[in-house]
Design a protein around this nucleic acid. Structure first.
Length: 720
DNA sequence: CCACGTTGTGTTTTT
DNA sequence: CACAACGTGG
């Protein structure tokens, strides 16, 4: 393996320093991933380490897949026994294997944020707690924080002050854990917490995994939380062969419990730590890097380092002031068209970054006027869409009959005439007999309590039992097809309503994804995947894991999602106070620093140049509000940023928010008129027969040239 | 039991 | 605005 030719001296050092604790402070674009891959290859082919003895933790599943692929293709290594994955997926794997030592079984359900909230809502009712005083999101995040810090309900008051508020939170937390257990379900944080606790409590199991993972590498170490720190610490303490890679300047997940102290204190947590700094940036030109450096040096809590590059560029980052968010979107798309034409590059070399998902909406609707394909990454996760979650709930109930949450989701969806009253009776019965809802269906006495609905419930039970049997016999894709057919899901969404069209498309896409998973799995494992395996894997999938970077389209995503990626041209929209830094982060200096890092991450994605935009008025809900350039812009050296129109530091007169007039739009002022000719990307040209609603979101009834009649939302068509 | 209307409520970021 | 929670009439 010729390391010298392909890596710079620091990277080489990372690769060849295999023993003992190693801290790699790797700036943005400094060849971090490359170093990890080479280090792994070096361990296997030069040091003759068995792949089975290596653990690599990546930040996304996608990164894990790519790493595996490159090891296989570039280095021709057989690495199927190598463990690569995210913290969560690795924990699932361990928990499934070790379920004998745990008080849940290996077919556990994994609850996402929405599941957590719906469970909490039920608990509020039971404990008579007011959701207005104890906001669901707030309590959910407090509980999440406890778990990230390995604080169980019984230890709660050792770490939290005791007052009225915390007492209630404690009650909720205790009940929440007990209900999760009843459902044989774990939330995301449980996956980490229970794995860490298992290794902590059970010396034999700890020994087993510490022996297996003789070499450990962790990517994005700056974004790990205490549970993750502890987990790794337990595994690495005996051999100390731990390499962590990260950049404290890119720590952007403290709100999720990540603590930057993990990377700042690594040299104290482990002994005889070797530290290597990767400061040469291979991605961005000097102009972009100076901008980024100028910003990040305003942060105090950091390892000092300075990124450098020898890449020159005539281009200068630009700052552009626009009047409102629509003009902003138009500007961005026009600029992209212009650059695309001028440089003859494909659309996938452009990215538009924003602070909040809500900002994608305008961009989406304006893109139609510019003939630019786009792809949104993130937002509502594919697997969290209603129609998909419904199907998943069926699968979960078949795998884990104790999962009451999933049970309640499916019992009357699609409608089968089992309404609230019957459900209430069933719940009471199950509670009296201390049974799960599904198990209650197996008791004959139940049906005496159900009156007219008894037969419907019986039919439902029978159906579930049949599916359960089939799920075991059939290959998962086959089974899924059968389930979808028998539930008549596709015909349920068979209308011209764009929402229904997208729902049935999602279901088909889900089937496709299942088929792909099944085929891959069979190839790698020489056997069919089980349903449990499949759905536990699904729960941890994200949008980023599945997106296609080769597709010819502009990518739209949050700054958070852009971590680890790179693009020729980066457009950052809404560089305003209240967005970046976000209004919720203004008071706390620590949070302000994190917002600054977030903008730093966004800027350092650029291979060629960066455009930042801000507007003067922005619509928030139904209000038009005055917007102001981000305070971060004032910190940047003036000469590093070219302003296209107007100075960003000019004094603006704060304007009072303007409430949008509720004017009645007369027929001829409407955005769309009856008789108007339009064009749709898929259906072609047509004429509007009816307009329901106002403006761009009106529901249009359109007769298309082929004779087809469709109902379509205004924003999906172009006026011609 | 359910469809459909009305009222109320809330948007940071995600595994 | 968008969507969830509630109430009413069939």
């Amino acid at each position: 393996m010729n390391v010298q030719a392909l890596l710079n001296p620091q990277q080489q050092k990372v690769v060849t320093t295999t023993e003992g604790p190693l801290l790699v402070l790797a700036g943005a674009g400094s060849g971090k991933t490359r170093s990890i891959i080479y280090r792994t290859a070096y361990l296997i082919s030069e040091k003759k380490v068995n792949p089975y003895n290596i653990l690599i933790v990546t930040f996304t599943n996608k990164a894990a897949d790519e790493l595996k692929e490159r090891l296989q293709k570039t280095f021709d290594l057989h690495i199927f026994s190598l463990w690569v994955g995210t913290f969560h997926s690795i924990c699932v794997r361990i928990l499934r294997r070790e379920s004998d030592h745990l008080d849940f079984s290996s077919n556990f359900s994994i609850y996402d944020t929405a599941d957590q909230k719906s469970l909490l809502k039920k608990i509020y009712k039971k404990l008579d707690i007011d959701a207005k005083k104890f906001s669901l999101e707030k309590v959910r995040s407090i509980i999440s924080r406890q778990k990230s810090s390995l604080i169980l309900p019984e230890d709660f008051f050792s770490f939290n002050p005791e007052n009225f508020f915390t007492k209630q939170v404690h009650r909720i937390y205790r009940q929440y854990q007990s209900e999760l257990k009843q459902n044989n379900a774990l939330d995301f944080d449980d996956l980490l917490m229970f794995t860490a606790l298992l290794l902590h409590k059970n010396k034999n199991i700890k020994k087993k995994y510490a022996n297996q993972f003789k070499y450990i590498m962790i990517d994005e170490y700056q974004d790990t939380n205490y549970a993750q720190f502890k987990l790794i610490n337990l595994l690495a303490e005996s051999h100390q062969n731990l390499c962590v890679v990260g950049d404290d300047d890119q720590a952007i997940y403290s709100w999720r419990g990540a603590t930057i102290q993990n990377i700042l204190n690594f040299e104290k947590d482990y002994q005889n730590v070797k530290t290597i700094r990767l400061e040469k940036n291979y991605r961005s030109p000097k102009s972009v890097l100076s901008l980024a450096n100028s910003l990040i040096t305003k942060n105090s809590d950091r390892h000092t380092k300075e990124l450098w590059t020898d890449k020159e560029s005539a281009l200068k980052p630009k700052l552009v002031k626009l009047s409102d968010e629509r003009t902003e979107a138009d500007f961005v798309f026009e600029k992209i068209s212009e650059l695309k034409k001028k440089e003859e590059i494909a659309l996938n070399n452009f990215v538009i970054l924003y602070r909040t998902n809500a900002q994608s909406r305008v961009l989406e609707s304006r893109s139609l006027n510019h003939d630019i394909n786009y792809q949104i990454i993130g937002g509502v996760n594919f697997y969290q869409r209603k129609e998909i979650k419904d199907i998943l709930a069926y699968l979960k109930i078949l795998v884990n009959p104790e999962d009451n949450e999933s049970f309640l989701r499916i019992i009357n969806s699609p409608r089968r005439g089992i309404g609230k009253v019957t459900q209430k009776r069933l719940l009471n019965f199950a509670e009296n007999y201390r049974l799960s809802l599904f198990a209650a269906l197996g008791k004959d006495e139940l049906y005496d309590h159900l009156g007219n609905s008894a037969q419907k419930v019986k039919n439902f039970f029978r159906q579930i039992l049949d599916w359960k049997k089939e799920a075991q016999e059939l290959e998962i894709t086959k089974f899924l097809e059968k389930l979808i057919t028998e539930l008549e899901l596709l015909s349920l969404y068979d209308s011209d309503d764009p929402q229904d069209i997208s729902r049935s498309e999602n279901i088909k896409e889900f089937l496709g994804a299942t088929r792909e998973f099944s085929e891959n799995y069979q190839q790698n494992n020489q056997e069919e995947p089980s349903l449990v395996h499949y759905i536990q894997n699904l729960a941890l999938q994200t949008d980023i894991d599945n997106y296609d970077e080769t597709e010819n389209s502009v990518k739209l995503m949050t700054m958070h999602n852009a971590k680890g990626m790179e693009f020729d041209y980066v457009f950052i929209v809404g560089v305003e106070d209240n967005l970046i830094p976000h209004s919720r982060s203004l008071d706390e200096p620590k949070q302000l620093e994190e917002e600054r890092r977030l903008l730093y991450v966004a800027i350092t994605r650029a291979k060629k140049n960066v455009f930042m935009t801000y507007v003067q008025t922005r619509r928030v809900f139904d209000m038009i509000t005055a917007a102001f350039p981000s305070r971060f812009l004032m910190e940047i050296d003036e000469e590093l940023l070219e302003t296209e129109n107007g100075q960003y530091y000019e004094n603006q007169v704060p304007r009072t928010p303007v409430r949008r007039k509720k004017s009645v739009v007369t027929e001829n002022k409407k955005h769309f008129k009856i008789g108007q000719k339009i064009e749709h990307a898929k259906y072609g040209k047509g004429v509007i027969l009816n307009v329901d609603g106002r403006g761009i979101d009106a529901k249009l009834t359109i007769s298309f040239s082929g004779g087809k009649l469709k109902k379509i939302i205004g924003s999906f068509v172009k006026k011609i």
